[in-house]
């Protein structure tokens, strides 16, 4: 198991200023502290939709890498998106799932099928070009750069534990200023 913030720090070292990143819920609060950036796409509107927003962004901007940092509970709400992404096959989409087995932001209740659900297997059978699983942060650090250089869609299941207590100011995610900053940054670059 990896601590989520350590994992995200390792990932952040390989994210460039041109990349679009879509983190969700608890991961988002860690990510915006680790890597604040106007091209963080934070407002997904409804739980589970991050991977779908990511597909739209990847199709609309094939010149950029689009990196979605999903949650396991979130992905379970939109499992069909794996199949849609596999079929659309955007080469610039990188789909990470932070698997901690809980709805962390909603009270820490377990996800259904906790410990038995095979997210990597789902992605593999849905047609992702490459699928990875990581539970050791040292190995993740060694391989994440190469993973982000592979043609997508690429899926990576990150077996993580929580980073600890968070201050969750949701205006940092849902506020209109966040969306405007993203819009401006995407138009400018």
């Amino acid at each position: 198991m990896m601590k989520r913030d350590e994992c995200l720090k390792a990932l952040a070292r390989h994210v460039t200023d041109a990349d679009i990143v879509l983190p969700v819920y608890s991961t988002a609060f860690d990510w915006i502290d680790i890597r604040p950036h106007p091209l963080n796409y934070l407002s997904h509107g409804a739980m589970g939709l991050a991977s779908s927003h990511a597909l739209g962004l990847a199709l609309g901007r094939p010149d950029r890498r689009v990196i979605v940092l999903d949650g396991d509970g979130s992905l379970l709400m939109n499992l069909g998106s794996l199949v849609t992404i596999g079929a659309a096959a955007p080469p610039n989409l990188y789909h990470f799932v932070c698997e901690n087995g809980t709805y962390e932001a909603n009270g820490g209740h377990p996800i259904p099928g906790r410990g038995r659900v095979d997210f990597a297997g789902f992605a593999r059978s849905a047609g992702y070009r490459a699928v990875h699983e990581f539970s050791d942060v040292r190995i993740f650090e060694q391989q994440v750069g190469a993973l982000l250089a592979e043609p997508g869609p690429v899926f990576a299941d990150l077996k993580i534990t929580s980073s600890g207590p968070q201050e969750r100011d949701y205006s940092r995610i849902h506020g209109p200023h966040v969306r405007q900053a993203f819009r401006d940054a995407l138009a400018a670059r």
Partner: peptide, 13 residues
């Protein structure tokens, strides 16, 4: 609902 997200992402681009 997937489509709502996809169309949103496209709109930003």
């Amino acid at each position: 609902d997937e489509g709502v997200g996809i169309c949103a992402g496209l709109a930003y681009t």
